[in-house]
Nucleic acid binder design. Structure first.
Length: 277
DNA sequence: AATTGCGGCAACCGCTCCCAT
DNA sequence: TATGGGAGCGGTTGCCGCAAT
């Protein structure tokens, strides 16, 4: 049956014997389990089984889910499928302007803490955001520094039609430059506005109670200055008085970076018109 | 028409953290 | 207090489809 192989080795209960150490046995067990488990894309039947099982029994123990549901998958795989695809509250459409802005701002602030970013984007998963960043935004920000052509983000979402896909691919190279782009540094310990980069990200993000509070971050370049991670790319980032002003009046619009504003406009035009900017 | 290269997404892997014992 | 298991996270890989050659 499906879960016999999975449950065969209870490694923690085994003692070393025949000269095989526990770690070695662990490894053997893992390999054996892996051989027995299905990998790769999920088919609709598996989705249906998992969905039905979780609907009925919930997700208290992911390792039990595949065994009890009769799926030849690891608990991790089931969890991943549920969390990133099957969950009913998953949003699978376009990334809105607000969502893109939020991702950009939070990434400036938190780095690659996708789960923390995802918390502020209801319906979006960390994996979605990570993929979106890696395939669209990262290139833009890398090229941001070198001022070369970048690829416009795809904003249609994951379930695009072939037509949209073709249109996107035929028109997705735009020229964007960021004349005043800040450069992120690898610094040791930063405490800005209560954010400690050396702490777990959740601890820092916990202080941002709602998306509304993100309005405080509406000045991307200035935020870099607040975080003290800006190299000398212009006075706006190094002016201590300016930084103090931001700290004193966080809700007042300061020094909105023209390069990023332009870039954001490009994104929005691409989304709204589905064509060149 | 066949081949190659590339982009995008889904999924896996390895690691760390948290919590129960 | 130490240990082990489960959960969660970020990085990476593999596959598929499309465009270019």
């Amino acid at each position: 049956m499906t879960h016999t192989a999975v449950g065969i080795f209870k490694v923690k209960d085994m003692k070393s014997r025949n000269g095989v150490s526990r770690p070695e046995m662990m490894s053997i067990s893992q390999k054996y389990q892996n051989l027995c488990l299905k990998k790769g894309a999920w088919d609709p039947d598996e989705d249906q089984i998992l969905r039905a099982y979780i609907k009925r029994y919930g997700t208290r123990n992911w390792n039990e889910v595949p065994k009890a549901a009769g799926l030849l998958r690891s608990g991790k795989s089931c969890r991943f499928r549920w969390m990133n695809y099957l969950r009913p509250d998953i949003k699978r459409g376009n990334f809105s302007k607000e969502e893109v802005q939020t991702i950009i701002k939070l990434h400036e602030m938190l780095g690659n803490s996708w789960s923390a970013i995802a918390e502020k984007l209801p319906g979006r998963t960390d994996n979605d955001i990570k993929n979106f960043w890696n395939t669209h935004l990262r290139k833009s920000f890398n090229n941001n520094i070198s001022n070369t052509a970048v690829q416009a983000p795809k904003l249609e979402g994951t379930q695009t039609s072939e037509e949209e896909s073709k249109q996107r691919k035929s028109s997705n190279i735009i020229d964007v430059s960021f004349p005043t782009a800040p450069k992120i540094l690898n610094s040791e310990d930063h405490h800005v506005n209560g954010i400690n980069e050396n702490k777990r990200v959740e601890d820092n993000v916990g202080s941002l109670e709602s998306i509304g509070e993100l309005s405080l971050l509406d000045q991307p370049s200035s935020m870099e200055a607040q975080m003290g991670r800006v190299e000398d790319y212009g006075e706006a980032y190094t002016d201590q008085m300016g930084v103090q002003e931001l700290l004193d009046y966080p809700n007042v619009s300061h020094n909105f970076d023209a390069g990023q504003e332009f870039w954001m406009n490009c994104l929005m035009k691409t989304q709204l018109h589905g064509n060149k900017v």
